[in-house]
């Protein structure tokens, strides 16, 4: 899932205080699970903004709403008209959602981020989130015992630990596990340690963010959808 954290309240206030009518727009998928930007968090943030506005004597109307997902058009449709009655959307969706909605609104009104999108992670226990994947576009987890060296190693090393491993922890922080320590131990358990003896050549990073913005186009799905639309149109004419 995508993990995010609400921005500091003062930063949010600085963003919104110049507007008259603000919609705090939550997303009930990933960011709801990490208690950052779901419907509930959007509602609480709305209350805080109303209180702050009253305190500061600022004339500001703040409302809230939430939809299931901010990354697909059909979820937006029921609320599109309502959204357009505001002069600012403070989106508490992840950065994908903010981009998606801003593109959808096409410059007719601003969409500001209410959260910082932090990483792709898991939830090992309630209230605790850890980064597990870098979305690099060229997965090597079969070589590293299911532990990602790209994001779980602070230096994205591909050929084993650096000299900074201390008691199994990373030199960056003694609260951070050394990914390569974990990888070596995991590969031992799997009985595949010898896979790590081979030198991994320089990576092709172009499959990641370094190759420019990425797209995935499934031609068979797009062709199918197009055909369905055509069929529907023909049916309609009959």
């Amino acid at each position: 899932m995508i993990v995010g954290q609400q921005k500091p309240f003062d930063e949010i206030w600085e963003m919104v205080k110049g507007f008259k009518k603000v919609l705090v727009y939550g997303c009930n998928t990933c960011v709801a699970i990490c208690h950052a930007g779901g419907g509930k968090e959007a509602e609480i943030l709305t209350s805080l903004l109303r209180m702050k506005a009253a305190q500061e004597g600022v004339d500001l109307q703040v409302d809230h709403a939430a939809i299931e997902r901010h990354c697909e058009p059909e979820f937006f449709e029921p609320l599109d008209e309502k959204v357009r009655t505001y002069d600012l959307v403070l989106s508490t969706a992840c950065g994908v959602g903010v981009n998606f909605l801003a593109d959808r609104l096409g410059g007719s009104m601003p969409v500001y981020p209410g959260i910082n999108t932090t990483f792709y992670g898991g939830v090992p226990e309630a209230g605790f989130f850890v980064e597990l994947c870098g979305g690099c576009g060229n997965c090597v987890l079969h070589l590293t015992g299911g532990i990602c060296p790209i994001v779980r190693c602070s230096k994205s090393l591909m050929n084993g630990p650096c000299g900074g491993t201390n008691n199994g922890k990373c030199e960056v922080s003694n609260e951070t596990d050394c990914a390569w320590f974990l990888i070596v131990e995991r590969m031992k358990k799997l009985g595949t340690l010898e896979k790590l003896y081979e030198v991994q050549p320089p990576r092709d990073w172009s499959t990641g963010t370094h190759g420019g913005p990425r797209r995935v186009s499934l031609e068979h799905i797009r062709a199918y959808e197009e055909q369905e639309e055509k069929n529907a149109a023909t049916e309609g004419r009959r």
Binding site: S154, K155, E171, Q200
Partner: peptide, 29 residues
């Protein structure tokens, strides 16, 4: 590999803990 840029933040100097690192290749590479 080089000390991570967050490393200097642990010492007496300010360093540049907010720097973006590279690590395009590692030592072996």
């Amino acid at each position: 590999a080089g000390d991570h840029q967050m490393f200097s933040a642990a010492g007496k100097l300010k360093g540049h803990p907010g720097a973006k690192n590279v690590y395009d290749v590692d030592t072996c590479q």
